[in-house]
Design a protein around this nucleic acid. Structure first.
Lengths: 190, 190, 190, 190
DNA sequence: GATGAATGAGTTTTCATTCAT
DNA sequence: TATGAATGAAAACTCATTCAT
């Protein structure tokens, strides 16, 4: 079937690795071509510009992350378990798929043009869980968005510091601790 | 005699604005010179390199932020009040000094060379508060670093989303909400 | 057996349109392939190079133009009528076959390699008419080439400005006016 | 006074020479830099883009041409003499300033972006002369624009063919012949 | 004949930094 | 100190042409 070669996957893969390692700006098309074992021109056969490539890589990885989390949540039934799975999945992904995770975060926060930053799918997953929990009477909170954001912040920031080696607690404990802190916020009466 | 005019402040001010707006990498020395109303060469009279300028701007703003928070905390006596002041101060600073705040965060997370990222002074303020609170018996938690990081994450992420206009709750309520959530984590029994 | 489809006409047609619109240099093989609905490689099955394609398109259109004028002149007998037919034919062609005309002119004046510019068939038609007219005693002029060139210039320049919309006189009047001006040059005594 | 070097004139001069010789498209910024004895970057210190440079060179030369013609016309009083001076000036310029003339014509017809083609100053000079002549009763014609265009066409086309060596008549005679032909068009009764 | 991915040499453009004035 | 023109290395991007399928 495949009549001709198609180096698009190689381009994307090389780009991901390098974007993650040095950031989008600091990665040159030459770097990408070199690592992909292709010529620079080939990049432009598949993408309109370096920015378009970055955008593409970002979306692809975001989807990958999203699917990863969905897989993690599949078997959870009650809200609390879903939340636990979400937190665990987040940490797990950041550990197993370091490259992807780092890239997603960096791109999300600063490197990408405003456009694509809009919808952070994983955050919407979390708010969904919170909604279900409130409906079930398990969770209590005032503002959905705000609560979601706070929990996301706890999780992401903890991972950020984990990566810089500033936390010495064993990983499992960290995850548990973060999960419990989440629970405290949404299950305790004021 | 001759009032040798010193353009350094102009340089720093222009750099700050631009770094914050477009990031360090995306800001050119030409941009800076243009906005500062000086020539490009002048930048190098005051700084060894663009990176050195960025580093300088970062430190200066971090100190400014730190001093700002210190002023906010001055009159708080008990740990809970200190924590409240800290959270309020953080939000207030991000509101009043938008440029500075945005720049500090962006630079902190991605753009600066590893060197200067090491010590995030405001975070150490927070851990200090947590320590005092634990000593006084007001706060309970297992790991100091981890807890500090989680609280920081909640605060920073909330501000991040506030800035993108995704939260519709009135600011005062948001601050109160975040503060209460912090309290829940460190004052509630498991 | 197999009706080996031949995409050559598509190539030529697409090339003509694009060459005319943006000039030869500014038209890429990619543009041509896209517009022709074929692949870039196919162009090289029919032409040795882009330049050869341009040359081909030029010749083909020049011949087309020439045949068009010949058809216009067929029924004219005396020199004056022939000249009138020539002028009318020129204007008519430029109107009905805009793409072809624009391309011929542009290519003729600047874009083609010296080679093919040599013989501008329509101009030789005009000089032929002038010769016949002189022999018949209808036209008077000193130098054949020079006179031909001047008349050509009047016609072509007028069409050029017509196309840019700078002339507001009705087309028929324009043609008549140009024809009369030609006549003045070759029928009036000094 | 001149405190620092300024290579802008060198850039323009080199560009003019090369644009004229090979056309704008075929001239690379590298060519220009090499010939100007500067680095490529310097071009961009003085012009936003290669296109902007071409535009600038075009305007400059058009003005130069215009001034040249004005000088030629200065001492002519009656319309007929003005017209003669105009025709002579045109031919003379094309001979003395070959580079400039060729460039102006090529750029005018195809190479420049639509924008700058709008106003062809010399043509407006000619229409001015025609107006004066009509007011003075010396010239007769119906449409000013159309007549101007036809005369321009005769002049330009003749020069074009002169350059390609297709005309063997001595230059002075050519000029005289063209001038007389112009006169015939605007001084003879229908 | 047709494809379309790949090429690579070449093009325009960018930008931190230097330096004569 | 301040200038601003100049630099040059490197960046993003282009495109006619080739070639395996």
């Amino acid at each position: 079937m495949a009549r001709t070669l198609n180096k698009k996957p190689e381009v994307i893969d090389a780009a991901l690795t390098l974007f993650m390692r040095k950031g989008i700006k600091a990665t040159t098309t030459r770097d990408i071509a070199l690592r992909a074992g292709i010529s620079e021109g080939t990049i432009y056969r598949h993408f309109d510009s370096k920015d378009a490539l970055a955008e593409d890589v970002f979306q692809e990885n975001l989807n990958y992350f999203y699917d990863y989390l969905k897989g993690y949540l599949k078997h959870s039934k009650d809200p609390e378990n879903m939340l636990r799975a979400f937190v665990e999945g987040f940490f797990e992904f950041s550990r197993v798929e370091q490259r992807r995770y780092s890239f997603i975060m960096a791109a999300h926060q600063t490197e990408l043009k405003q456009l694509s930053r809009t919808k952070m799918k994983p955050k919407r997953m979390l708010t969904k869980i919170l909604q279900i929990g409130r409906k079930a009477g398990t969770f209590q909170y005032d503002d959905l968005e705000l609560t979601g954001v706070m929990l996301m912040g706890m999780i992401m920031q903890t991972i950020f510091y984990l990566k810089s080696g500033h936390i010495t607690v064993p990983l499992d404990n960290v995850v548990e601790e973060v999960f419990l802190s989440c629970l405290k916020i949404i299950t305790n009466p004021k």
